[in-house]
Design a protein around this nucleic acid. Structure first.
Lengths: 195, 195
DNA sequence: CGACTGACAGTTTTCAATATCTGTCAGCTG
DNA sequence: CAGCTGACAGATATTGAAAACTGTCAGTCG
């Protein structure tokens, strides 16, 4: 291809890796493919990422962070904690549902990547439950919620809604009635939360 | 082996299949193995089960029914609905946790089988949510619970506790603190349920 | 006659040879 | 000399021929 003079950065490698993953899928995407897409030798890729696993982890983190960042705005909004909590859950569900529904192959690819990168996924979940803890604590402060331990309650809320954000259940998200099921679970939880 | 004169029944075939699955695992257990274990030709097995898939489904149903039956007793007990509900969830969690912890290989085997038999699993879940609906309805009747639609509430309860009975999460059930997490979720749900 | 067998066709799995990939590093190049 | 290359060793994946399995059914046996 055109011998680009642009410097080879980690960011360019990540973008190329995402493209290769989209084209070839997680099983067949190789470091050699990524290097070829960039017009460099695979040895150059290894100057920026120690291993193929590290490269994949970085791509995964990038993807997960997009969701966390979108939710951070909702979590930090200046609103009644009850509405904010409901909005946060709804935003999370919708985000996941669209990712899974709009581009199922890429979603499946990222599901595989996430399965390989336990550490990164754990941090992502910690980030999300951290945002939830903030909302719960605000509700307790305003007297709207009762929760002796906001962090523990946040984890409970996250676990209880797993069916609507855990990728393992993605297959269920297109069935008719899921939205009602989601509403039923969230309603029950919010009733349990109120002071 | 000893040429048994006992008649070849579906039940004997199911027992032999379970044994073969235990020995060989789900990937390598064949109909020929089952026939050999029974001292008959594989053609005879096909007189009782139309296909290998049907045989596996029957084994799976048998296994799932053991759990349903154990829980039916708890669901039908004459007790305060609140206690009954808590007991039911706890019994379900403990039953699954012991199956997964005491014999991990067989649990993994049944997880594979269940994945193949969507229909049978669906019926099992319907049975369990049916039991839950009974408890919720009793709570509404006694004035202890508020639930406009007990069946919908039962499904919500089942979904919200999925992390503690869905086999996909079995890996988490041995981590320290799961019991507290389970208690936190159940407490939240029961608070949301009360009138 | 009803329960069982075993050979058979078509499909799936296994296994070993072959090809490709990962990760390293001495040396090239601008 | 900083960034890159490409040959290499060991590990992993692919391939296709051979073996095993699934499901059928005409025929055997008590």
């Amino acid at each position: 291809m055109s011998p680009t003079t642009e410097p080879l950065t980690a960011e360019r490698i990540l973008a190329a890796t995402e493209e290769v993953l989209r084209r070839h899928g997680p099983a067949k995407a190789t470091v050699v493919d990524v290097a070829r897409a960039l017009g460099v030798s695979h040895g150059s890729v290894y100057r920026h990422f120690r291993t193929k696993a590290a490269l994949r982890e970085a791509v995964t983190k990038r993807w997960l962070d997009r969701t966390s960042d979108a939710l951070a705005g909702v979590a930090a909004a200046e609103r009644d904690p009850g509405e904010r909590l409901r909005d946060w859950f709804w935003t999370l569900f919708e985000a996941k549902r669209h990712k899974a529904g709009d581009d199922p192959e890429m979603f499946a690819t990222y599901q595989v990547l996430a399965g390989e990168s336990g550490e990164v996924v754990g941090e992502h979940i910690d980030e999300l439950t951290g945002q939830l803890t903030g909302i719960v604590a605000a509700g307790v402060a305003s007297g709207a919620f009762t929760a002796p331990d906001p962090a523990a309650t946040a984890r409970a809320l996250f676990h209880a809604t797993g069916r609507f954000h855990d990728p393992g259940y993605a297959g269920e998200w297109t069935r008719p009635g899921v939205e009602d099921e989601f509403t039923a679970v969230v309603d029950l939880l919010m009733r349990g939360l109120r002071a």
